[in-house]
Amino acid sequence: MEEKSVNKTNSNGYTFLFAVIMVIVVASVLAFTATSLQPIQRENVRQEKMQSILATIGVETDRAGAEELYNRYITEAVTLDYQGEEREGVDAFTVDLAKEIKREDEEQNFPLYIAEYEGETYYIVPLRGNGLWNAIFGYISLEDDVNTIKGATFDHLGETPGLGAEITKEWFKESFAEEKIFDESGNLVGVSVVKGDIDPSDKDDNQVDAISGATITGDGVSDMISERLQRYLPYFKKQTDIKVATK
C-alpha cells in the first residue's frame, strides 16, 4: 500500500498532472480574489489619495470622511502642461504620476490642486521620485506666496522599515512645515534633507534634518521636491496675483 503510493507520486505523468492542477487551482483562486476585491481596493486607494491631499493643508480625517472634506476644501483640480497652461479635458485627480513622469516634458500632464481652507489659498503639488528600493511619492502644499510650505506627506512602495520608511512618520513630515522653497537670491531650490548639524527651527535655510541610515531615501525626497516644483514654476509666474520670488 505504502510502496504503491510512493511509486504513483514519483511517475512523470503524476508529477505533470499535479503541477498542472496546482497551477490551475492556485491561479484561479488568486485571480478570483483579486478581481472580486478590486473595486473595494480601488475605493480605498482613492480615498487615501484624498486623505493625503487634505493632510498637507492640515485637515486630518479618516479615510471614510475624506471624500466629503475633499469636495468642501479642494476648490479646483487643474492639469497643466510644461508651459503652465491649463489642459482641458484631463481630470487632474485621475492623472497617474507614475506614468506621466516617464513621458517627454511636452507630453506630460502636471496635476495641481487648489484648496481654500480657513480663508487661505493653498497650492498642492503631487510629488513622485525614487527612493532606495522603489518609488517614493507624496504631496506638498504651498501657501499663496508660493514659497512657504504649509505641509507635506510622503509615502513609499518598498523602503526599509525603520530607515527609509521613516519618511512617512509625523516628525519628518512636520519638519517641512514653514520651510521655504526659494533661497535668499530667489532661486527655486526646494527643501534638502541634510545630514548633520542643522537648526530645525531655522525655516529659511531650505534644509530639514535627515533620518539616520536613510541617506538615499532622503536624497530621493530632496530631488523629488525640487524636480517636481520646478515644473510648476511657469504656471505660478503666469498668475499675476501670485508674487513669485525669482532672480
Binding site: V26, V29, L30, T33
Partner: peptide
Amino acid sequence: IPSRIRIIVQLVVVASLVALVDQVLKA
C-alpha cells in the same frame, strides 16, 4: 505531493497564501 517538485509546491503554497492574505487585507 510528487517528491521531485516538492520544493516548487511548497513555494507555491507559501507565496499564494501570502498573496491571498495581502489581497484581502488591501480590501
